[in-house]
Amino acid sequence: MPYVTVAIQADQPIDLYYEVQGTGKPVVLIHGWPLSGRSWEPQIAPLVDAGFQVITYDRRGFGQSSKPWEGYDYDTLAQDLKALMDELDLKDAAIVGFSMGGGEVARYLGQYGSDRISKAVLASAVPPYLFKTDDNPDGGLEEQDIQQFLDGVSGDRIAFLNDFTKNFFTPKDGKLLVSKPLRLYHREIASFASPKATYDCVKSFAYTDFRDDLKKFDVPTLVIHGDADQIVPFEVSGQRSHDIIADSQLHIIEGGPHGNNVTHAKEFNQALIEFLND
């Protein structure tokens, strides 16, 4: 199985598991919390068929990657992405971040620039800044909201993930849009993540301010978001990112929940591929 060593921590290598499918311009798919690269299954075949080389990887702490005790801040996660990009020598690549993965897209471009990047996509993504503060009154999360996540993950984690996956695929004021077996499949993916990584990443995606990162975007960017997302509401994330990123494109999936790359895969894939081909 392909791995790339991205760091040494406590004298142990930190290895990211990745997969490469197809040929053509590279598209790097960065998964959300608390899943793995497997969550991109509905996108891989359509992208390969459209002539792209698709790279998926498991964030440290998730999937088949190393599960160290530390290193779940966005500076480190963006550094991991850079190590993968450098190891594979990717050029003219598109980077697509779903939910938490949108933070890696933002921090990568903010820290390392666009030398290897041709396009960026923020899908149901957490930027620009979820935590509500005096200078960020439009943030969607308050301390008690974040604490509920942390308590759930540190308590009966599997029960928490069971409820989370229901909300993940259910539009606001709607009904679950996937089969029970498919929902449970995603719950299982999440359940095998490192509990420590699952906990620490809540703090990372909740408290990290990406506003300055977004101002540094200098590549064509697509923001794609469901207007019925009850996990990362469009109004506090996708809309604001679109407003900050100069000349960004916006695609709203009507009735789309958070996991709209699964529930609305055909529309999601069409918007993504049209943007990549533009």
Results as ranks from 00 to 15, higher is better:
residue 20 V to K: 06
residue 114 S to G: 10
residue 26 P to W: 03
residue 173 D to N: 13
residue 16 L to S: 06
residue 96 V to E: 00
residue 126 V to A: 13
residue 25 K to T: 14
residue 6 V to N: 03
residue 66 S to D: 00
residue 80 D to W: 04
residue 71 G to P: 02
residue 42 P to F: 01
residue 208 T to F: 08
residue 157 R to D: 02
residue 245 I to Y: 10
residue 98 F to D: 00
residue 261 N to V: 11
residue 265 A to M: 08
residue 26 P to C: 06
residue 255 G to D: 05
residue 7 A to N: 08
residue 276 L to S: 03
residue 89 D to R: 15
residue 227 D to F: 00
residue 49 D to Q: 15
residue 183 R to L: 07
residue 137 P to K: 15
residue 73 D to E: 15
residue 151 D to E: 07
residue 86 D to F: 07
residue 70 E to W: 14
residue 233 P to S: 06
residue 87 E to G: 10
residue 186 H to F: 15
residue 83 A to H: 15
residue 157 R to K: 10
residue 194 S to V: 04
residue 11 D to I: 04
residue 270 Q to T: 11
residue 157 R to I: 08
residue 254 E to M: 09
residue 174 G to R: 12
residue 140 G to K: 01
residue 229 D to Y: 01
residue 98 F to K: 03
residue 201 C to E: 13
residue 14 I to A: 03
residue 166 K to H: 10
residue 34 P to D: 04
residue 31 H to N: 14
residue 80 D to Y: 05
residue 219 V to T: 02
residue 122 L to Y: 13
residue 255 G to A: 13
residue 19 E to N: 07
residue 221 T to N: 08
residue 195 P to S: 06
residue 181 P to E: 15
residue 214 L to T: 01
residue 135 D to I: 12
residue 156 D to S: 06
residue 1 M to A: 12
residue 130 L to T: 09
residue 188 E to C: 10
residue 168 F to I: 11
residue 258 H to E: 01
residue 191 S to P: 04
residue 264 H to N: 10
residue 2 P to C: 09
residue 82 K to I: 05
residue 167 N to I: 05
residue 10 A to C: 07
residue 231 I to L: 15
residue 44 I to A: 00
residue 254 E to P: 00
residue 246 A to E: 11
residue 266 K to P: 09
residue 277 N to S: 09
residue 36 S to F: 02
residue 239 Q to K: 15
residue 146 I to F: 00
residue 193 A to I: 11
residue 206 A to F: 02
residue 13 P to A: 07
residue 19 E to W: 03
residue 159 A to V: 09
residue 223 V to L: 07
residue 19 E to R: 05
residue 217 F to D: 01
residue 51 G to H: 04
residue 150 L to M: 10
residue 182 L to I: 14
residue 260 N to V: 10
residue 264 H to Q: 13
residue 137 P to D: 07
residue 87 E to A: 13
residue 100 M to F: 09
residue 131 F to K: 14
residue 199 Y to I: 05
residue 221 T to F: 06
residue 22 G to I: 09
residue 7 A to Y: 12
residue 12 Q to M: 07
residue 188 E to M: 15
residue 77 L to S: 02
residue 203 K to H: 15
residue 3 Y to S: 05
residue 126 V to C: 12
residue 76 T to E: 11
residue 249 Q to N: 10
residue 265 A to R: 05
residue 28 V to P: 10
residue 13 P to L: 14
residue 191 S to N: 12
residue 179 S to P: 02
residue 18 Y to F: 12
residue 235 E to S: 05
residue 170 T to F: 00
residue 37 G to H: 13
residue 3 Y to H: 11
residue 178 V to Q: 02
residue 81 L to Q: 03
residue 147 Q to T: 11
residue 91 K to Q: 14
residue 111 Q to W: 11
residue 143 E to A: 11
residue 97 G to K: 01
residue 106 A to R: 02
residue 78 A to M: 04
residue 129 Y to H: 14
residue 101 G to Y: 08
residue 223 V to A: 06
residue 182 L to V: 14
residue 146 I to L: 01
residue 87 E to D: 05
residue 112 Y to V: 11
